[in-house]
Computed example of a mutant assay.
Amino acid sequence: MASTKPYIGCKIGLISKAQNRYEGILYTIDKTNSTVVLANVKCFGTEGRPTDRPTPTKDDVYEYITFRVSDIKDITLCESPRSYGLPPDSAIIQSSSASSSSVYPGLTIV
């Protein structure tokens, strides 16, 4: 999996067409449904970007958010995947550690 989707597990910054910035871990990209899913997501609001609907930063961290690709203005790589944990292995489809709060049900890596 690491060779075909090298950014899965990376920290990603995303700006929506509504000018809101989000940061989270890239969980999956679904080409069929044209969606991107981030896990452990924080919303930083519009941060002064020009918009008719300014949004403040939210304190909440969302377990995951699914974004429609057509409504994404920009995506940037914030940091590479962490080097600890399981080694990159194409045989692994999904994992969960004892320290993680939950598994993301219903989501698959496509």
Rank of each mutant, 00 (worst) to 15 (best):
R82I: 00
D59G: 01
S70A: 15
T32M: 10
G85N: 01
P88G: 09
D30Y: 00
I15V: 06
T76L: 14
A18S: 10
V37E: 02
A91E: 11
P105R: 15
P81I: 01
T51R: 06
I72G: 00
T46I: 10
L86T: 12
A98D: 14
S83D: 10
R21N: 07
Q19L: 08
R21D: 02
I29Y: 07
P54S: 03
R21G: 01
L38A: 04
Y64M: 06
Y64A: 02
S96Y: 12
L77G: 03
V69G: 07
Y62R: 13
D60S: 08
S16W: 05
T55R: 02
R53K: 13
N20Q: 07
G48E: 11
D52Q: 14
Y104M: 09
S100C: 15
K58W: 08
G45F: 03
E23Q: 04
D71K: 03
R82C: 00
N40M: 03
C78N: 09
T66R: 14
S96F: 12
S70L: 13
T55V: 08
I29D: 08
V69M: 07
S16Q: 07
R49Y: 03
D59V: 03
S101A: 12
T76A: 11
I92Q: 10
Y62P: 02
S70D: 14
S83P: 08
E47I: 00
P81Q: 06
L38N: 00
K58M: 12
G45N: 07
G85Q: 04
D52L: 11
D52R: 13
L86S: 12
V41F: 03
S90W: 15
V61D: 05
Y84R: 15
L26F: 02
Q19E: 10
A91C: 15
D30A: 03
Y62N: 11
T51M: 04
K31A: 11
A18P: 04
I65W: 03
